[in-house]
Design a protein around this nucleic acid. Structure first.
Lengths: 362, 362
DNA sequence: TAGAACCTGGACAACGTTGTCAGATGCAAG
DNA sequence: CTTGCATCTGACAACGTTGTCCAGGTTCTA
């Protein structure tokens, strides 16, 4: 059945609609009822409708009923744009991350959303695709929408463009990577410590020639994890052969090439530390095709890592906790806390599953 | 932790321009500069500023420069709330899905975002957590924000509450599951056909006792996939023992219990068809602990499925394509197309990796 | 040189809501 | 039958932007 009462006529209309008299009048949506319309229908004043809609006190039950009937009859829905204009707060926050499709960011944005929801706010989000210009464009678009706050996983390394916004009261928290050239709240995982522990774990199982494959060097976490790698190696008095280290984009081709080359040189590595989830996945594929076992520890947990053989040992960070902490910090700012910008570092956790405990196959 | 003093009037820093005398009654709260402020500073009219900001023609280069300088000096950013109020279009679309953290929805929302971006729109999104009330609440909140359009992965089965919105011109497209009790565009994967093919594949490899574990029966895809299962079984003249069929929540406990019980009865199944990615993951775990091999085909592809042994055979749907198609359809509506609501069904693809080709271990 | 055609700039009125404030109304007490 | 007081109610002015429209000024044509 399902016959619709949809009017085929007024779907929406581009700005310069032909003829149709004044463009100033309602050439936009099919006419949506406003509070004025509701007031007229209910035979009350405009403000009374506003009071009913917002549950303000001071309306007789009888009046309220009349207004409610008019609202239902007309299908009225408050226009929040106008409300925002008047009140100044939008009850929405922006989340700028690198890629919504990356499994690492899913739980993170979900956590941010949960916190936002608990505070009655909606979440607007966008992917920067690791492009600083796009990050800035997105952030500024969000500011133009007057989001109350921003959670940013930065792609760029210069955030001075945010200074006027922050000064104007846009609460801002960075996550996963610190901001560049401004002082602001930031929530991070302990990339340095996590990587150091992971590499130390490999060393403890007898490895000395250990490879490191990480993300591009302009990304803070990549540098930190490499630093952790070097620290662990130094602690064990192992000289790092620079052919064991590779930073760059994390697309499968590049990573595969990097892995293969450090596995085949004159001094082939017996273990690999993978700098993030995407790297790990590709390295697992490369190692699976090898005749000899090569140990592997990856940064970030991956689904099904426990079911591979051997299971993949990882340094896990809690993406959801990262997002939750950041969002909570954001709303603390919005609630008026005026603490100095703080850097919060969350611990990582080594999960041993087998691949990191393989002995070197020398 | 030390408690910090909270002042209600905190981070809003009214930029005190000492020389400017006009800042008396107007700028009581640390407000942002408006076009009026810019106009005053540049010594031009309000509308001229608007023209510069929007790149409209009819401004001398010299005037434009003066205005631009004032904009930069004040850190002016157009207030889109006001703009929206005036123009009627928000250049934003809403996406309501089940769970942002589910790996199936990541690529889908990313695709929607890409299309939105290509049309200059931002994406507001929220998770319904499979709760119809929450879905409605979210959708209506988005409508109050006056999003131009909605992409909805429905949790509920009655969407008549959307009728006034659609009539008022909110473009609407459903994805992954059809809407309930209204007529609207919908983009689906071919759940029925995909499941039928997957089960037929198992039958072709000699299985006759095949289990089906799916999502809750109020979810459309769960029903469709079960229908596909029954169709394939009927085509092969196999009577389905109802102890082989289990629908319900997809949490690991429930799925594990369902799998174990159909694997241990008097007529234990020799193969399992898993109704979605979450079910598959748990079933893989259960089967991995079994002494005898049991065949498995899962609906939805999973990362690393190829690296397990055996590799997991799946009926893959293209989540990104689903999102892209829906979003494109949405913007076609917004561009004024007034086609009748349409149902678009995307094909699935069987990917054989080993688990689905195991012979029955009778 | 006057008039027309054109260009630039600005005054003003919306858009739909909420905060303020003063006017109505009802009821009890004087 | 007033007065006082508490409740309700509605007119009106913002909020910051854009569409309309007209006033000046300039250049070009007759």
């Amino acid at each position: 059945m399902a016959e619709t009462a949809r009017t085929p006529v007024s779907r929406l209309r581009a700005d310069g609609s032909p003829s149709d008299g004044t463009a100033d009048a309602k050439s936009r949506y099919g006419n949506r009822p406003t509070m004025k319309d509701v007031a007229a229908r209910a035979g009350v004043g405009l403000k009374t409708v506003s009071r009913v809609v917002n549950g303000e006190p001071g309306v007789t039950p009888d009046t309220e009923r009349r207004v409610q009937e008019a609202i239902d009859a007309l299908g009225f829905r408050r226009n929040d744009s106008a409300r925002v204009l008047r009140k100044g707060r939008t009850a929405s926050i922006g989340l700028v991350l690198e890629d919504l499709a990356d499994p690492f960011y899913g739980p993170l944005s979900r956590a941010v959303e949960e916190v936002a929801r608990a505070h009655g706010a909606l979440l607007i989000n966008g992917s920067s695709a690791e492009d600083p210009d796009r990050e800035q464009e997105l952030v500024l678009a969000l500011c133009a929408r007057r989001v109350d706050g921003l959670v940013v996983i930065p792609a760029g390394d210069d955030h001075r463009y945010l200074e006027p916004e922050i000064a104007a009261g846009v609460a801002t928290v960075f996550v996963d990577r610190p901001p560049g050239r401004i002082d602001a709240d930031v929530v991070l995982s302990d990339s340095f410590g996590g990587a150091r522990d992971g590499v130390a774990h490999l060393i403890a199982h007898g490895h000395r020639r250990i490879g490191f494959i990480g993300d591009q060097p302009r990304i803070h976490t990549a540098i930190e994890r490499l630093r952790g790698y070097r620290a662990a190696m130094a602690d064990a008095d192992i000289d790092v052969d620079e052919s064991w280290v590779s930073l760059g984009p994390t697309d499968p081709e590049r990573v595969r090439h990097a892995a293969e080359s450090m596995l085949t040189g004159p001094a082939p590595v017996t273990a690999v530390f993978a700098g993030n989830n995407r790297v790990t996945v590709t390295v697992v594929r490369v190692l699976a095709a090898l005749p000899r076992p090569v140990a592997l520890v990856g940064f970030d947990d991956i689904e099904l890592a426990d079911l591979l053989s051997p299971g993949v040992t990882v340094v896990a960070q809690d993406a959801a906790q990262l997002g939750r902490t950041a969002a909570e910090r954001l709303f603390r700012q919005l609630d008026g806390a005026s603490d100095a910008p703080e850097r919060i570092e969350l611990p990582t956790r080594l999960i041993t599953r087998g691949s990191g405990e393989l002995a070197p196959a020398d």
